[in-house]
Amino acid sequence: MVEHRPVLTALAHAVLILGVLAVAFPVWLAFVASTHPSTTFLSGLVPLWPGDHWRETYGQMFGTGISTSGAPPLGLMMGNSLIMALSIALGKIAISILSAFAIVFFRFPFRHLAFWLIFVTLMLPVEVRIVPTFKVVADLGMLNSYAGLAVPLIASATATFLFRQFFLTIPDELVEAARIDGAGPLKFFRDILLPLSRTNMAALFVILFIYGWNQYIWPLIVTTDERLYTVVMGIKRMVDVADAEPQWNYVMATATLAMLPPVLVVVAMQRLFVKGLIEQEK
């Protein structure tokens, strides 16, 4: 838009500010709640400014956890979430870049069938296939393990498809130049394809890390051991206390902290992320 009408500019800003408020206000409230004693929220009055109780709340969350809610200390849960999210994100990238490599650059029988089979799995997320997947994981003895948390979520049609689309834009002549330069398939993959996919991998990492971090149902089902609880599960368990009011200050403190790693990942990789999604390196 090249128009310069003050009214329109003000309107545009108003809409954007409204959007930001809609997203940011609940986050702010969560933070505020985590800094007041647990009784404040139960009174029915919601304060808008942080209180002075944050040291006790965060201290206890990091230290011992709250035993009454059956949640382990926060550090352990954050660690578990981190391991799961990283395994899922890195595993997905590794597997899908290799699948896309095979599908785009090699001629083998049933190549198209293979691609479409991968594509069809888009219609079968974990939530749909949860019972058979659980059976498989249980039979493989992977319940209550990091492998059980991450492996079933690693296969990714979306990432394969994204890499495929990117690989298709690589000119044939570049592949041929590499052949003449004596680069075999694996060398081509390592020396040319991987460096060129850098921004795409970064963009996918951001998306997939958040996807992995936010997993809820699957960890809930495959873990019964407290030492493997993830932070998203922990929040839910703290809310679900029997015969007592939830301790909202602890819940909100956990939620605030649980938000931090994804935010850090996005901030750190923001530039690569945008680049990977909108433009290809020429």
């Binding site: 000119p171 002549e173 041929e176 130049a177 590499a178 020396d191 040319i192 060129l196 850098r198 390196e281």
Partner: peptide
């Protein structure tokens, strides 16, 4: 071989 699009490795 010299290609029409040069086919230089961009990175």
């Amino acid at each position: 071989m010299v290609f029409q699009t040069y086919a230089l490795y961009p990175h």
